[in-house]
Design a protein around this nucleic acid. Structure first.
Lengths: 336, 336
DNA sequence: GTGAAAGCGCTAACAC
DNA sequence: GTGTTAGCGCTTTCAC
């Protein structure tokens, strides 16, 4: 591999001069600069990042911790963050972590070894050892789409509970009273969205029946299908279901389809997240839109400020959400 | 940041000994080894990867080049590759590249700077400068889901044309004669799948009408919707459409829904890839299944062999495919 | 078994 | 303006 010394030898100057040119520093005669640039181009020389980061003690790389089985919302989000970070001059290194202690600790080790400039979490880890590392201040940290009440960390998210309440209220406003909930275990948003659902029913004076609530292990379409089957099997009146993610909603619609029920004719469905695909389903899925672009861009920007050492307000940045009513939710039968 | 010297000082031995322990080398007294391990654990010491890779001239990192706007198939694929690579002891660094020369060249620079142990491409780049780098042999390379007839590179893919032909034949076997095609520009698979479609029609003695073929700029649902609208606007008889990806198919179904047409009652649709979501749509999408797990695992395994310097057969590894018939394709009206 | 020393590729003082 | 030097954190001979 061609190194800075090789270039120096070819041009007939010292490595220091090459370094100055490559890093756009002053104090190089224009002619020399041109010569160096020419040789760099001809040889395809690119400075070794490892060597560079060793002396600079900066890696220009920020880590992104995401769930091993990231869903479409998270996929969109991390694409956005990656792009924003790139605009701020940072590379991105992904750490896929599973929902178990071993995986978290292994990732933590890897993260430490990389000597990253910063870390963005899209995945809620659980190990206290992990949080100790995050809060000890050795690295700038931004939590994205959740917070944990850690006051000295920056986080970017929406009001999950209020949003879920809004989704449920939408169904109530359409005249539905027998409203089910499919949500997931793990990750605090699953419980927060359940809380919003309960709050909406309660505010509308609808008695909460826990048999209309299903917690599934994960947030994908397969689980949504399974969850809807459980709901149907309980035999209670049910005219609408709020699913805690769009993917759960998609699976729920599928379960209905398999038993010959149509959406929204026989059942209204509302999802959550407004992932790309929802608008293109048939019927289009009513859902809660998170301002994903703005959230991702803000996370990247906060990170960049944090790394630069600029003063940044710690704590939560709470974004607004929006109900997007599409075809999957319709007035309840016999609604007055 | 705590370094090997710190550990050495604490334990009261030399850095060399610490290195031996950390890397599981021989020639360390058991007692000393235990002591070192204890201090490593207590301090949370993790060797600096940059320093390590500088002396070893290995980074234990393989790059994955993926399209900036990766689709769900590619998302599944790179998750699989990432996991497999991890099992082989490698980290993964992603390079998102756009379909333009500037982006490709920028990524190429970044790739060179990282001094990666290997590179897997899920994205077909175009710049000859990029291919020069890939073929010059300075780094192990595996192409995944495509090949470019570069005999000295390893590639893993299916027979795109045969698979597309199979998809089209499925529609023909259901009695369809007026079959449209929606496919994309860029990436050779778009053209290969179009070729398979044409071959199937031709083999069945169905005259090819180019007005039933639409090339859209990209492979997502929005484009599928746009493509279907174009097809409908041309006013030709049409009872079935083959979409070159599942996402295109999803958009096509949506376009039909918006004008009050139902699948498969009014139109049969076949997609391609068998992404996760297709089985959970309503109706489920008939499609071509690529053996994505096997392909991803093989790509990772080839890479690992290549890095180890083991002899590996260069050229293409061609995997089989499978037609998955679900509800979106049904017999043609008036089929005999 | 263990330590001292060299060196990986680069940047940043500090001379000149 | 430019070169010399030291050193980032690590591994690896080579003495001992």
């Amino acid at each position: 591999m061609i190194s800075i010394k090789d270039i120096a030898r070819i041009v007939g100057v010292s490595p220091a001069t090459i370094s100055r040119v490559v890093n756009n520093k002053q104090y190089v005669r224009p002619e020399v600069r041109q010569q160096v640039l020419a040789v760099v181009k001809a040889t395809g020389y690119v400075p070794n990042k490892a060597a560079r980061s060793m002396v600079l003690k900066r890696t220009f790389t920020v880590g992104i911790v995401i769930p091993d089985t990231f869903n479409m919302f998270q996929r969109q989000l991390f694409s956005i963050i990656e792009h924003s970070l790139e605009e701020h001059g940072y590379h991105t290194l992904f750490f896929f972590v599973k929902w178990d202690a071993k995986s978290e600790l292994r990732s933590l080790r890897a993260i430490k070894a990389e000597k990253l400039d910063g870390l963005i979490l899209i995945h809620e880890v659980n190990q206290s050892e992990f949080y100790d590392y995050l809060t000890e201040g050795s690295i700038p940290v931004v939590l994205c789409t959740f917070d944990r009440g850690l006051p000295n960390l920056c986080s970017v998210h929406i009001d999950e509970e209020a949003a879920a309440q809004r989704a449920t209220e939408h169904l109530i406003a359409l005249g539905h009273r027998d409203i089910g909930l499919i949500t997931g275990m793990h990750f605090s948003f699953g419980a927060q969205r359940a809380k919003g659902y309960r709050a909406a029913l309660s505010a509308a004076g609808i008695a909460l029946d826990e048999r209309r609530v299903v917690f599934v292990p994960s947030y994908n379409a397969d689980e949504g299908k399974a969850g809807m089957r459980v709901l149907l099997s309980r035999g209670l009146p049910l005219s609408a279901v709020f699913a805690a993610t769009d993917e759960l909603a998609i699976g729920a619609v599928r379960a209905l389809y398999e038993v010959g029920l149509a959406v929204p004719r026989d059942m209204s469905i509302v999802g959550f997240d407004d992932i790309d695909i929802t608008a293109n389903l048939a019927p289009g899925l009513s859902t809660i839109r998170q301002p994903i672009r703005e959230m991702g861009a803000r996370a990247a920007q906060l990170m960049s400020e944090l790394i630069a050492g600029n003063p940044v307000a710690r704590g939560s940045t709470v974004f607004g959400f929006e109900l997007v009513a599409r075809e999957s939710s319709a007035p309840a039968p016999f609604a007055d």
